[in-house]
Write a protein that binds this DNA or RNA. Structure first.
Lengths: 136, 136
DNA sequence: GGACATTTGTACGTATGTATC
DNA sequence: CGATACATACGTACAAATGTC
């Protein structure tokens, strides 16, 4: 399955394989990703390789890890519609630690924030996986 | 400086220290972050701990790593102003690999994308570190 | 509550590959 | 070509959180 001789790093090959399983529905939202130990046996690579592959998927926002429990495919939540006033400007970036805490972004989840400003003043900071901005 | 007995993991303490140096201007945009070896000596922790700290800062979009050269503090670019039409909706998420390639997001950089849709159809996908949406 | 197995998190060591200077 | 610097990948050990019996 994984080929150390390919140009692509092993952990990326593994991430590709798992991503494919998520996209094709073999791993469904909310379901558990096989444990690190299981993946070690399944793919014959070391723990670090597994962990880096899972870390890459976390960065893509596809999975979240929970200590003592396991890693699961993210279950998309219904999004709140947030109205953006005229004249506003919108940026997106990664949150600071303080923002993570305030917005309740789970440790291990990689979620951008949407920042709405009006006249240079911040009007709102939103976790990007829970809102959709509307311009109307 | 770093204290293994604190509740906070070493690599996060180190990330905090480096982030502080960036925010306070001791490490200026575009300047080099000390090399992994230098940081090993400076803080007395292992290479992996250093790398995880730097990885955390990359996830925050504060630094980028360049193989064979080093790690440097990101230099914020002037942002293109993109007008959003009435009725549009905007989401933000992490890019797919294909989008990364298309938008020219460097490997190792953690940059969200802004997705503008109108009537359910995608009108634009932008690298979040290079644009600001305006609604007027 | 306590004991235990499972699972992820953290942290160290070591070796090799690859790109830049 | 050599030195430097980051990337990948193996191994090991212990800590911390969770669930089960």
């Amino acid at each position: 399955m994984l080929d150390p001789h390919l140009d692509r790093p092993l952990f990326r090959q593994l991430a590709d394989a798992l991503r494919d399983q998520i996209i094709t529905g073999q791993l469904t939202p909310g379901s558990a990703v096989p444990s690190i130990k299981a993946l070690e046996h399944r793919y014959g690579v070391s723990r670090e390789t597994i962990r880096r592959a899972l870390a890459a998927l976390r960065v893509e926002g596809l999975v979240v890890a929970e200590r003592g429990y396991g890693t699961r495919v993210v279950d998309e939540q219904p999004r709140e519609q947030v109205k953006v006033p005229r004249g506003a400007r919108v940026r997106s970036r990664m949150p600071t630690e303080a923002e993570r805490a305030e917005l309740g972004i789970e440790p291990g989840a990689v979620v951008p924030v949407l920042v709405v400003t009006l006249g240079g003043r911040v009007r709102g900071v939103y976790a990007a996986d829970r809102v959709e901005l509307t311009f109307s």
